[in-house]
């Protein structure tokens, strides 16, 4: 059963300009997926998350989330999903310590006694907040507050989690611990995740599928690798080889290397070296074939560099396509 199954979601905010936030958004998300919502600022990502979590009523469209009707059973949805907003740390009670903040929320999510204590301890440890458990929220860093907000939302063992820019304010270590946590929730506990991020590398690392939104509409929604492959961008793979036999060099046939367009080569810096450039429309498919060829020929691999198509390219291409459309 699909965890999320909605059709034709539209939303316009009332106000002086009646901002159009979403238009005709369809989404079917299976159990265990990690969906990355990408798009420029103001594309409607946060609005979509709020609608899917039952916090906001759409103007048009409908469907089900966790099997509950989006319009008629929103309170059930709200009770069974978790949402972490980028500003979630504003909801932290400054009058309570880090641990007391979690202790307050535990019974709200139906956790009591030893079970609650265990889960709080686990979350504090996993999000590197153990040492700060007794501190006042005002005295911990912005990144730590963000992680506290995340811990609070994860107290509930919900099967669907919405994360709106979860690593926004974090430094490298904080980013790592939060991404590990998300990965663990998904891979080891089967939690379905919908996240927004502006860090394309993060989306590529975490997301099994990508939805690219712009001005409230879907520009692209597909599996992550399919998004990357379908862009049709050709990228070079460069190698420096130490030849097995310094007299003879036969370059590989492009047809033998998956997705390769053409192959060119030149003599290298040293007499027994050549540099080879393979242009490929799918670096991830060409590389294994190319490596197999190198080792099959008995050459030595002295250097290699390739720039596969990334979601950064996808972002640029897709938003450029959006600009071109009137």
């Amino acid at each position: 059963m699909a965890v999320i199954d909605v059709l034709g979601i539209g939303k316009r905010y009332p106000g002086r300009h009646g901002t159009l936030a979403l238009e005709g958004v369809d989404l079917t998300l299976g159990e265990g997926a990690v969906l990355g919502l990408l798009g420029p600022n103001g594309a409607g990502k946060t609005t979509l998350i709020k609608i899917l979590s039952g916090l906001l009523v759409p103007d048009s469209g409908g469907g089900t989330v966790l099997g509950y009707d989006l319009l008629r059973q929103a309170s059930r949805i709200r009770a069974e999903v978790s949402l972490v907003a980028p500003t979630a740390d504003v909801g932290i009670d400054n009058n309570l310590t880090v641990r007391q903040n979690l202790v307050f929320w535990a019974p709200v999510y139906g956790l009591h006694g030893a079970e609650a204590r265990q889960r709080i301890d686990m979350l504090l440890a996993r999000l590197d907040l153990e040492k700060k458990a007794g501190d006042w929220p005002m005295h911990i860093s912005a990144g730590q507050r963000q992680r506290l907000a995340l811990a609070r939302s994860l107290l509930a063992e919900n099967t669907l989690v919405f994360l709106d820019e979860p690593t926004n304010k974090l430094d490298a270590d904080g980013v790592r611990s939060v991404r590990d946590m998300i990965r663990d929730l998904n891979m080891n506990h089967g939690v379905t995740v919908v996240l927004t991020t502006h860090v394309m590398e993060e989306a590529e690392e975490l997301c099994s599928e990508i939805m690219f939104l712009e001005r409230g509409q879907i520009r692209r929604h597909a599996q992550t690798d399919e998004v990357l492959r379908s862009l049709g961008i050709v990228r070079p793979i460069r190698l420096v080889l130490g030849l097995a036999d310094r007299a003879v060099f036969t370059p590989p046939e492009p047809t033998a290397l998956a997705a390769a367009e053409d192959v060119s080569w030149d003599v290298g810096a040293a007499p027994n070296e050549v540099s080879v450039t393979v242009r490929s429309s799918d670096v991830l498919a060409t590389t294994p074939a190319l490596l197999a060829w190198v080792f099959g020929q008995g050459h030595r691999l002295l250097g290699m560099a390739s720039a596969p198509v990334t979601l950064d390219d996808a972002f640029a291409t897709l938003s450029a396509a959006g600009e071109a459309k009137p």
Binding site: L284, P288, L291, M304, A305, S306, P308
Partner: peptide, 8 residues
């Protein structure tokens, strides 16, 4: 198998 290699 290795799908991508980049040195920098």
């Amino acid at each position: 198998e290795i799908l991508q290699v980049a040195e920098h």
